[in-house]
Nucleic acid binder design. Structure first.
Lengths: 225, 225
DNA sequence: GGCGGTTGTGACGACTGATACACGTCTCCC
DNA sequence: GGGAGACGTGTATCAGTCGTCACAACCGCC
């Protein structure tokens, strides 16, 4: 397994090489094809996961079957950590958006580390605080912004995290279908499609297969406010 | 100051009496009338707060002045803890909903405790995880439920936390104006008012000054799904 | 007694979800 | 290699929810 990504993860950055080496022995490798789930809402969770490569979507399903996505996570990020502190079952389903490799860590193993290493606790607290901040941000967006605004914001966020410079703009290979993008911003696929078409028509974007190229990031930023 | 509430707070429950006594010396008492703020969005934060009595609303303001509330917190709960892990300024404004007494604790003091007491870290992690869970819940509600549904949900939540049995139902003295309730559920005051009027007309609720009496909690629960 | 803040209610318009359908593309199987 | 079907995408029409605006009534407090 490529452990370089994990070595650089903030949670482990403070650890000595020996402690980190001991930890890697406890990691459980998981490989997932697109569309398969790591765990589902309601499952009992005894593990948390680091993303080595690929992308994971965290989603919830309403009783009528509609879905909404809480987050798209990429390499170096961790998820499923809430089971550590709370015995209640998982409140979200984690699904691979693309072919994905994970490193799982049993709660008990991390718990032992937390007992002896206050810096690791601090890092975990920071990670949770940041997630809470992001979620609060999304809440405000849902209340204040219309669908095109939320789409613009989501694209900019994805660009920040997964964007790569291209010849004529920023290539964002988000790997999401428009349906998934719609679930992420809390709107219908059709409305998201129209918002994208409008952005394209204005020359701010170019659409590619499960990707976009941002051509005019300034305008897009302006639209997202 | 009435420290009984704090002694029972989960964050301190695991501490010995001696450690707790030392901690109380570091607490800073704050009294607030209705409407005054503990801190505002953008402030630099170096303290977190426990609610001894009263209620606090956490809110954000959009650039056009519209507000939305992230949470209503009551006695025993803590807030402002995100400044501990993240140097960035406060992302919400904390305002007293009623006359409120707080106990403030400097970040540095808590940090010292975290270094030596892993149980306190664990409690703090748990508190954050629960908040994140609640926030995710709110997100899903915004996407899936209509305004009456969200109002019903908010009332049930407030009833859980602040309700007291009355002769003909559950008295929920939330102390919020309809405007504040609207900001909490992410809707306009008028729409919230109409939802409340409908519930009253169906005999599920009785309205009182900054309070409601829930008469038929079953139906209200059903409406909230 | 007046005045600001809060509540109650109606009319209207805009955004957006639902529905329906055409089209393109990819995969898998024959 | 080609075709069928599943999946993803592009677009239009229509109806419903909800926000905005407007205004009346009410309450509590100075």
């Amino acid at each position: 397994m490529d452990i370089e990504v994990l070595r650089r993860a903030p949670l482990f950055a403070s650890l000595g090489d020996d402690v980190f080496a001991a930890l890697t022995d406890e990691l459980i490798e998981v490989d997932l094809p697109r569309g398969s789930s790591v765990f589902r809402e309601g499952d009992q969770g005894d593990q948390l996961y680091f993303i080595v490569s690929g992308k994971i979507k965290l989603g919830r399903t309403a009783q009528d079957g509609r879905e909404n996505l809480l987050a798209i996570l990429g390499p170096g990020e961790l998820f499923g950590e809430m089971a550590l502190f709370d015995p209640s079952p998982r409140t979200a389903t984690a699904t691979a958006v693309s072919e994905t490799r994970l490193a799982g860590l049993k709660n008990e193993n991390l718990r032992a580390l937390l007992e002896t290493r206050p810096e690791v606790s601090a890092q975990l607290l920071q990670a949770l605080a940041r997630r809470l901040r992001r979620t609060n941000e999304s809440l405000a967006d849902l209340v204040f912004s219309d669908v095109p605004g939320r789409v613009a914001k989501a694209l900019l966020d994805l660009a920040d995290r997964f964007g790569r410079p291209a010849t004529d703009g920023i290539l964002v290979a988000h790997e999401l279908t428009q349906e998934e993008l719609a679930q992420l911003v809390g709107a219908s696929r059709e409305t998201v499609n129209k918002a994208l078409a409008e952005f394209v028509q204005r020359g701010w974007l170019r659409l590619e297969a499960r990707a976009v190229v941002i051509l005019d990031i300034q305008r897009l930023r302006q639209r997202s406010r």
